[in-house]
Design a protein around this nucleic acid. Sequence first.
DNA 1: GTTGGCTATTTTGCATTCATTTTTTGTCGT
DNA 2: ACGACAAAAAATGAATGCAAAATAGCCAAC
Lengths: 249, 249
Amino acid sequence: MKSTIPDTGVPITPPAGNGGDRQENRHEASLHGEILLRLRDYVVEGNIPEGARVPERQLCEMLGISRTPLREALKVLAAEGLIELLPNRGARVRQLSQRDLEELFDVMAGLESLAGRLACEAITDEEISAIEQLHYEMYGHYLHRDMHGYFQTNQRIHESIVAAARNETLKTAYSNFAGRIRRVRYSANFARKRQRWAEAMREHEAILDALRRRAGSELSDILFQHLRNKRTAAIEHLTEPQEDAPAAP
Amino acid sequence: MKSTIPDTGVPITPPAGNGGDRQENRHEASLHGEILLRLRDYVVEGNIPEGARVPERQLCEMLGISRTPLREALKVLAAEGLIELLPNRGARVRQLSQRDLEELFDVMAGLESLAGRLACEAITDEEISAIEQLHYEMYGHYLHRDMHGYFQTNQRIHESIVAAARNETLKTAYSNFAGRIRRVRYSANFARKRQRWAEAMREHEAILDALRRRAGSELSDILFQHLRNKRTAAIEHLTEPQEDAPAAP
DNA sequence: GTTGGCTATTTTGCATTCATTTTTTGTCGT
DNA sequence: ACGACAAAAAATGAATGCAAAATAGCCAAC
């Protein structure tokens, strides 16, 4: 029998690894920890449709474990905001309203804004060079209309700034929120907006400039605005997915 | 026999009596949810010494439940950063290094900075009036050297700003980090520094001013600096607890 | 054909039990 | 007396069992 989600009928395939039998692993990490990592990735990757009900039993079979460690992992994922636990009704992948997304984007903007400010206090010339390198690389993707490469490099730039802030607590929080947003495939159509794309490139240049000058509060401002604009573009696309010129040149 | 923490011998008294009355039915009627709320408060209040080992069995007896829901709550608290779970060695209250505190303060600064920026977009005149009211109240505490009242009102002001940001995600994250810091009684001696106290009052006036003018990025800057100064004062006190003039006039 | 109510099955929540791992304790030898 | 080693005790991690709640299934009534 195929495993399906009763509510939606969407089939769920197990995450990587052994599907059913208990190969004896060197228990380097605890089971619930392992499950947590796998489930988190699984959810973040978007393998489970939003709001879909996923019975514990099914997940247990899928992961080849009992319910106890699974439930522990689910509690953590709920605390992280990835799923929600309805009393006596099981776990559902958290459905993000447009308002939720706006809020998330703003918080991300605030965190990156903070990261930029802190980075200016501690960043080395080498790190700036590395970011410049990424910037040029991204510019190449932009010229070639390589959306995927662009987004990848763009993400690395922002992560570099966060890393340069030298604040593990910030980094963890950043990853957490980033994971919540990543579920939403908002960016799929973003690159079609050529105008916004060009704008983003200019903003990135301003970011680099402020970073070079170690202008903390200025960079903070620019980063916030940059993310704000990103938010606007992303949210628009949720309501009207098709727009502007086609992606291919 | 009295229930004690083996490692330290410090007795642990149960959190608020569970004499059958229920008041916090917010979104958790389930047992693990209730346990989570109670344990979180219990830890945040500082009832368990840092790094102290607390056997599950003991907590279970204390709370009158079995280990399953307790362990679920512990996993969540660990995810929140309040405690840490050592594999096969149980849960310990997380010990914050000076670096951890610095990081936490900076993140708090970033979140409040963000809150101020967002608040400028949405705050009403009535809310500003309310904050002004709190400000005068706080000024009274300042004049009377009422440290406790001052801190209480100060906290309400900052919470009001966060509330005015109209961002539940931000508010939740803010509460989370605030809880982590609250465990540390850093503020106990802060008010003894008269100079810093006067400085903080001036900063608060600048905050109000920027808020009235809805000057978002300016307020963002001021708030960050304000929290940064707070951080400096707090951290200093961890290394040299006694300083400056006595509190009583 | 649809709606309302009743029963059966599934699913969740928690307690209990089992298996390792860690910690304590007791003993022996030097 | 002190330290090393071994056995006992206790603690943790995971699986299973059981009661309550929720879902679905079914039949009758309109």
